[in-house]
Computed example of a mutant assay.
Amino acid sequence: MDARRFADDVRDAAAFAPDAATVARVGLGLMLFAAGVHKLLDPAAWAVYVVEWLVPWLVVSPVAFMLVNGALEIGFGAAILADRYTALASAVAAVSLSATCLYLAAVFILEGGLFGDVLARDIGLTGLAWSVLLASLRGD
């Protein structure tokens, strides 16, 4: 198969693909929903991301904090998946993930590189959340 025919076949196939905004919205919604479910099933696994100097700032234990976050993430993820209140839910996700990245960056710097892998992943998820928010505000 030559390159020109391959390019034509790809263009033809792309006509049947969902638009990028839909793929991004569903991906963000699934991620939030899955993370929320996992936080409810195993909050201790997520509580390890709360370093000692953050604990006094929380009004509840790290495990309770994760349980509350898990329930909220399920709700916001479901809203995004259902394409209901998408702007609000993706705004909450974008702001929350941005704050998480700032926290993880502080931990990375102050704790000798701790959670660098999670920070790298969450930077991408933050961009995804902002993308979904902007697309929903535009009406895409």
Rank of each mutant, 00 (worst) to 15 (best):
residue 5 R to I: 12
residue 72 L to Q: 04
residue 6 F to P: 10
residue 140 D to Q: 12
residue 81 L to V: 15
residue 102 L to V: 14
residue 75 G to C: 01
residue 79 A to Y: 14
residue 116 G to M: 03
residue 108 F to W: 15
residue 59 V to E: 15
residue 33 F to W: 12
residue 125 L to D: 04
residue 132 V to S: 02
residue 111 E to C: 07
residue 14 A to K: 06
residue 7 A to W: 09
residue 86 T to D: 12
residue 97 L to K: 04
residue 7 A to R: 14
residue 98 S to R: 00
residue 71 A to W: 00
residue 124 G to T: 13
residue 128 L to I: 03
residue 11 R to T: 11
residue 94 A to E: 10
residue 112 G to P: 04
residue 66 M to Y: 14
residue 103 Y to R: 06
residue 97 L to S: 07
residue 105 A to L: 14
residue 11 R to A: 12
residue 109 I to K: 04
residue 101 C to Q: 12
residue 39 K to L: 05
residue 106 A to W: 05
residue 11 R to N: 15
residue 43 P to R: 10
residue 138 R to S: 09
residue 34 A to P: 03
residue 117 D to A: 07
residue 140 D to P: 06
residue 62 P to Y: 00
residue 99 A to C: 14
residue 58 L to N: 01
residue 78 A to Q: 08
residue 135 A to W: 15
residue 117 D to Q: 15
residue 105 A to I: 04
residue 113 G to W: 05
residue 93 A to P: 01
residue 113 G to E: 13
residue 23 V to S: 15
residue 73 E to F: 03
residue 98 S to W: 00
residue 10 V to Y: 06
residue 122 D to P: 00
residue 40 L to C: 03
residue 94 A to N: 02
residue 111 E to Q: 06
residue 21 A to K: 13
residue 79 A to W: 10
residue 133 L to Y: 08
residue 11 R to K: 14
residue 106 A to N: 06
residue 50 V to G: 01
residue 44 A to M: 09
residue 45 A to S: 11
residue 47 A to Y: 03
residue 60 V to S: 05
residue 84 R to S: 09
residue 139 G to T: 11
residue 76 F to D: 07
residue 8 D to G: 02
residue 49 Y to V: 13
residue 92 V to W: 14
residue 132 V to K: 00
residue 40 L to M: 03
residue 20 A to F: 14
residue 77 G to E: 14
residue 27 G to A: 11
residue 32 L to D: 08
residue 84 R to A: 15
residue 129 A to G: 00
residue 21 A to M: 07
residue 17 A to M: 14
residue 61 S to G: 02
residue 114 L to D: 09
residue 91 A to E: 06
residue 19 D to S: 07
residue 92 V to R: 05
residue 57 W to Q: 12
residue 64 A to N: 08
residue 118 V to M: 13
residue 122 D to A: 03
residue 113 G to N: 07
residue 99 A to R: 03
residue 12 D to H: 11
residue 43 P to I: 05
residue 113 G to S: 02
residue 72 L to D: 11
residue 26 V to C: 02
residue 110 L to T: 09
residue 9 D to L: 09
residue 55 V to Q: 05
residue 72 L to P: 01
residue 60 V to W: 00
residue 24 A to C: 13
residue 49 Y to M: 11
residue 36 G to T: 05
residue 17 A to I: 00
residue 28 L to K: 05
residue 67 L to N: 01
residue 51 V to W: 02
residue 131 S to L: 15
residue 126 T to R: 01
residue 44 A to H: 07
residue 79 A to H: 04
residue 84 R to C: 08
residue 67 L to M: 14
residue 81 L to E: 07
residue 64 A to S: 10
residue 48 V to T: 09
residue 133 L to G: 00
residue 137 L to V: 11
residue 60 V to K: 03
residue 98 S to L: 12
residue 113 G to H: 07
residue 85 Y to D: 15
residue 29 G to P: 04
residue 1 M to L: 08
residue 134 L to R: 05
residue 99 A to H: 10
residue 35 A to T: 15
residue 16 F to A: 15
residue 102 L to D: 11
residue 70 G to S: 00
residue 118 V to Y: 08
residue 70 G to V: 07
residue 104 L to F: 01
residue 81 L to I: 13
residue 128 L to F: 02
residue 120 A to K: 03
residue 117 D to H: 12
residue 79 A to N: 08
residue 68 V to K: 01
residue 14 A to F: 11
residue 56 P to Y: 00
residue 120 A to I: 03
residue 136 S to F: 01
residue 36 G to Q: 12
residue 59 V to D: 09
residue 38 H to Y: 15
residue 93 A to T: 00
residue 108 F to M: 08
residue 105 A to H: 13
residue 28 L to Q: 03
residue 100 T to Y: 13
